[in-house]
Simulated scan of single mutants.
Amino acid sequence: MPEGHSVHRIARQFDRNFVGRTVSASSPQGRFAEGAALLSGREATAARAVGKQMFLAFEDDLWLRVHLGLYGAWDFAGEILVDPTIASANGRMGQTNQRGTDLAPILDDAGENSLSSIGAPRRTRVHVRMSEQTQGLGEDGDEWPPPVVGQVRLRLLTETTCADLRGPTACVLQTPDEVAATIAKLGPDPLVDDPAEGEERFTAVVRRKPTSIALLLMDQSVVGGIGNVYRAELLFRARLNPHTPGREVPEEIVRQIWRDWVRLLAIGVETGQMMTMDDLDPAAYRLAMANRDDRHWVYRRAGLPCRVCGTAIVLEELAARKLYWCPRCQA
């Protein structure tokens, strides 16, 4: 499931490529035909992400809410105006060393940082042309608009850019009041809420819950945007047993987890990848950014030795999701 950093990157992409433009909407699959008909011909006016949910505003106070869930993804084609602070012109989101050392772009075949498809890993067949200035479409025999591939729930199309939505858990139209009600049910998001206020909200909720901290971190009403990867990595970085009830976690550790999430989310949005290891030299950093297996402490390392103590990393199932942790470092 795409985690918070991906959803924020998607919203930023929509802000640069769709906001301020009239959008043609359709539902090739047919499951969102009525909603697409209401959107078509309207100007997109805003794009925002909160936790794992994205909201696109259109004229006349009409909002589109999208939750990608486990299988959803946005595929982009055409002229893609990229954010120069987080993207490179080689067809992939760019990376910047979290310690400030600029490195050449690194390609990642895991799909985390792909500009052409953000969401569930997939091989995209749509063509992406990245540009900071508008250029003519149809060059080199490109077909425009691109052909529909697979089960597309919603296609949003401007004169130059196409976005196809596949496999979302939620794709619904909402009024402003309904959007506000949806957001009110979500926990704090470091990129939306004031970080200090978010820390207080998060700490207060966790400290009164008997639920395990591992489950609380995945509860979007407790904190926005954390998924399976960030959950495992945050708990390891805090050296915290995932089964500890929230109310038994020392307050300073709860606050440490929030502040760590603020930092890791910012890195994820900047790089497009869930980079959770610190203090790597340039060579190790490039290796980690290019290979998912080299950028995490415990996630997807079941049976492998802990990078700190050498104990085999444990994999167990918790609420139908995989949980990775070190039984020694997190005892």
Score class of each variant (00 low, 15 high):
T211N: 04
Q151G: 10
T244S: 07
T169I: 11
V149F: 09
A238K: 01
V149I: 15
A170N: 07
D193G: 09
V229S: 05
T160A: 14
N228E: 06
K209A: 15
E197S: 09
V205Q: 11
N228K: 04
L156Q: 10
P145S: 10
P242Y: 10
V206Q: 04
L191E: 08
A181Q: 12
R208L: 04
G150W: 13
A238S: 07
T169Q: 15
C171G: 12
T175P: 03
T160D: 09
A163S: 15
D164N: 14
T203S: 14
A196R: 10
C171E: 13
R201E: 12
E143W: 13
H243L: 13
S221V: 02
E200N: 08
R247K: 14
R247N: 11
V206C: 00
R166I: 14
V249N: 01
K209D: 13
P250T: 06
V206G: 00
L240V: 00
S221I: 06
G225C: 09
Y230E: 07
G246W: 08
E233V: 06
Q174V: 07
R247V: 07
L165R: 03
E248G: 00
T203A: 15
D219S: 02
V179A: 08
M218V: 01
D193K: 05
L235H: 00
V205Y: 08
G224P: 02
A232R: 04
T160P: 00
G150C: 11
E252P: 00
P242I: 07
A238N: 03
N241E: 05
L154T: 11
N228L: 10
R155A: 15
G227I: 04
G187F: 10
G187Q: 08
T169V: 14
F202C: 02
V192L: 05
D164Q: 13
L186R: 01
P176I: 02
L217G: 02
G141Y: 13
A184Q: 09
V192N: 00
K185H: 12
A180H: 13
D177W: 03
N241L: 02
R201F: 08
R231Y: 02
A214Q: 09
V148Y: 11
V249P: 07
R201L: 12
R237K: 04
E233H: 09
G227P: 03
E199C: 13
R207D: 10
A163T: 09
I213S: 04
V205A: 09
W144K: 08
T244V: 12
Y230M: 11
G246A: 11
L240E: 01
P176F: 05
V172M: 08
